[in-house]
Amino acid sequence: MLLLYTQGLCPCGIARMNYQLNFADLLNYQDVLLSGLWMTIKLTIVSTIGGVLLGIAGAASRRHRNGFLRRAAACYVELIRNTPFIVQLFFIFFGLPAIGIKMSEIEAGVLAMVINLGAYLTEIIRAGIDATPKGQIEAARTLGLSSRQIFFRIVLPPAFARVYSSVVSQCIIVMLGSAVVSQISVPELTYAANFIQSRNFLSFESYLVAAGFYLVLAFVMRLGLNALGSRAFSREEKPA
């Protein structure tokens, strides 16, 4: 530290402390900012729903009788978990057109988010499924339920409830990760912040406001999903 002082790096830091915050100039761009926020919310809703469905399908495949399905799901999970999200996104948006699969920025962004979330949720939900007591499955078989009925009615609901808080966390991670889709020009929140600071050079304020929005979004999302969960998984007595 002392060394840094003597080398004169400190005055430079102090000079920056004189920076005057200027949020007023951001107001000129509030439409851009708000439409970016709205886009982030829409991306999150669609990819959360899609990702949860894909995660359930993935988890069901990981525990399916069919060995091919099991292996295919395992490959999918490993492929997504061990590569960067931005590379997955670029591959979908820039790579796939080479084999004739073209889509808009938003479609590519949503697809990448769904595929990414689906892989992580596959593992999370599978862990919940593995914790099912064997006796419950036997009881259901004894009552005559088919494998499909057992999975959807007996195994999945408590499994999902068991891992619900991890599911919520993962959905929030993907919401925050949606910032990356600004890189293919999806006009979401980070894209808006980028856009604004490139016009008025208020980088500090633009990104601070964007960060604040993400923080609030994450907070509201966790609260909302937790409330939804405790409602759905409540074990309070029901009227007959």
């Binding site: 006796g135 009881a139 004894t142 009552l143 005559g144 408590p158 409830a161």
Partner: peptide, 24 residues
């Protein structure tokens, strides 16, 4: 097994009720 379930019921040591469903 599904056909058999019409003829035979089973009760287990650990009850094995489905925890996410009400008694009814």
């Amino acid at each position: 097994i599904r056909r058999l379930s019409e003829s035979v019921g089973m009760v287990f040591q650990n009850f094995n009720l489905f925890p996410h469903l009400t008694v009814g």
